[in-house]
Design a protein around this nucleic acid. Structure first.
Lengths: 205, 205
DNA sequence: ACCTGAACACCGTTCAAGT
DNA sequence: ACCTGAACACCGTTCAAGT
């Protein structure tokens, strides 16, 4: 066939097709990706270095959908909460991508700008400089773990033997399951975390 | 060669060899696993259903190294803290396994017993029944996210442009890196979470 | 029951050939 | 520069053959 007059592919098209496949099946393969783009597997290698780069592109795309504009506009706790919610929402709408995003984090200037804004907002709200990064990391770890909880099968709650584990069974019986269960745990944990973090502030504004 | 007088393999030997390979390389393949067991790849299939079962065995092995004996013996916050620490320690000593453990959780009666003990301890400490599971899930999510933070490359802290992100750069400069950085964030977050969670208790004992 | 070699389908990647 | 078909190494899994 030879070279087309106008290229059939570019990095964006490849990344989006990969994400679509991840959303549908939880993973992607080069042959299927090529098929969905109506192209041969070998063609992809003219645009990306390999599978690893495609994964990086997907991660960057997702990272940029996280809304961090609240820092500097809302009070520190509302800003952290809004950021955490948006972060988790991204995962919630791309369940299959959670595994990808969690293991290898995103490297992107956009993220450094986001962290910079967060650091500034928290320091200005009275958090000591030695603890701001730990605060941000703690919230991010909680969000990541909650995203995993959101997409993983519900082990704690499923198949409980009410004779052998009566206390657990009773608690499970009065607790919601599915998405509401994960949401409850996320909100409870986020509120607790923010409450506890608040006591680290020194000078108040 | 035919059947040996005494079997060369069993599930335990396979799981441990897989874990050793995961610890060394972050992943394992059937051919390499077979090689390390001085056996042909096909032999493994006489003892396990396939790659997926081997992963399950590794997960179960690791889950059983988490110490949950504190529930019912220590005060609720010390018990939760000890459990969280042990949980994270397991991941810390098997960095390559974090990805495995996080995506697909463990199904094991041992874990249900652990959750049962945790539920009992927390209810007895005054937590309302409707929130115990959310409390446990929140702590577990934080631990899982912190484990990912522990093994992932340090994005937030690396390659910061001090002209473009001055506040972030300054904070990075006075913050430890590597394991101490992750430890600081874990302890700060865990303390904050436990502090915040404490306010959910109703009747005290 | 339990090991093996041979075979199969599938994947990621490379490369020479074509425009 | 950018697409393709063919080829390669590698992986997970199956199966008939052997004791």
């Amino acid at each position: 066939m030879g070279r087309p007059r106008t290229p059939l592919l570019d990095k964006d098209r490849i990344a989006l097709a990969a994400l679509r496949q991840i959303d549908r099946k939880g993973d992607f393969t080069i042959p299927e990706l090529a098929h969905s783009l109506k192209v041969s597997p070998a063609s992809l290698y003219h645009h990306v270095d390999g599978r690893a780069e495609i994964l990086t592109l997907v991660r960057q795309y997702l990272a940029r959908t996280v809304d961090a504009t609240a820092f500097g506009h809302l009070p520190w706790d509302d800003a952290l909460r809004a950021w955490a919610q948006s972060y988790r929402d991204t995962f919630a709408s791309h369940a299959g991508a959670v595994a990808l995003m969690s293991v290898q984090p995103v490297t992107d200037p956009v993220l450094h700008r986001m962290y910079d804004a967060a650091v500034a907002a928290l320091e200005d709200a009275g958090f000591p400089q030695q603890s701001v990064l730990a605060v941000i990391t703690a919230v991010e770890s909680f969000v990541l773990g909650s995203a995993l909880d959101l997409v993983a099968p519900e082990v704690m709650v499923a198949d409980v033997d009410s004779a052998a584990q009566p206390r657990l069974a009773a608690a499970v019986a009065i607790t919601p399951s599915g998405r509401p269960r994960a949401d409850q745990a996320f909100h409870l944990g986020l509120d607790a975390l923010l409450t506890g973090i608040g006591s680290l502030r020194t000078q108040r504004k």
